[in-house]
Structures are given as C-alpha cells and as structure tokens.
Measured scan of single mutants.
Amino acid sequence: DHWEIRVGDITIHLKDVDEEIIRWVEEALRNGDDLEEIKRWVEEVLR
C-alpha cells in the first residue's frame, strides 16, 4: 500500500502503513502539530 497525506502545501508519502497511523497523522496535521515531530513519530512506529 502507498499513502499520500495532503494538508495544505504539505504532502507526506507513506508506504505499508496501518490506517490507524494515517488517521493519527491526519489528525495531528489538522491540529497544527509540528511536522518534524510527526515524521519522527511515524518513523518510530514503522521501525
């Protein structure tokens, strides 16, 4: 699977990601969370 999350001008590409993570990231972006923080979290989860 390949996911693209778009929020404003930001697009995040994710592969082999659980839908729950996608929802979490979308929510975090909508809440204005720091992008670097989100990326770190996702990388942590995917490890």
Rank of each mutant, 00 (worst) to 15 (best):
D1R: 03
D1M: 13
H2Y: 15
W3M: 04
W3K: 03
W3I: 05
W3S: 04
E4H: 05
I5E: 01
I5D: 03
I5W: 08
R6C: 03
R6A: 04
V7Y: 11
V7W: 12
V7I: 11
G8A: 08
G8F: 06
G8W: 05
D9M: 11
D9Y: 06
D9N: 09
D9G: 06
T11R: 05
T11Y: 12
I12W: 11
I12P: 01
I12S: 02
H13P: 07
H13A: 09
H13N: 10
L14V: 12
L14P: 03
L14F: 13
L14D: 01
D16C: 04
D16E: 08
D16A: 09
D16V: 10
V17E: 02
D18P: 14
D18F: 15
E19P: 14
E19A: 11
E19C: 02
E20A: 10
E20N: 11
I21C: 02
I21W: 07
I21P: 00
I21H: 03
I21R: 02
I22N: 01
I22Y: 11
R23E: 03
W24E: 04
V25C: 01
V25F: 06
E26G: 06
E26W: 15
E26V: 15
A28R: 13
L29S: 01
R30F: 09
N31E: 06
N31Y: 05
G32V: 09
G32S: 09
D33L: 15
D33G: 10
L35S: 06
L35E: 08
E36V: 04
E36N: 08
E36F: 04
I38P: 00
I38G: 00
K39F: 14
R40A: 12
R40E: 05
R40K: 14
W41C: 15
W41D: 00
W41N: 02
V42N: 00
E43R: 02
E43V: 04
E43G: 01
E44Q: 04
E44N: 03
E44W: 03
V45P: 00
V45Q: 15
V45I: 13
V45H: 14
L46M: 07
L46F: 07
R47D: 12
R47I: 15
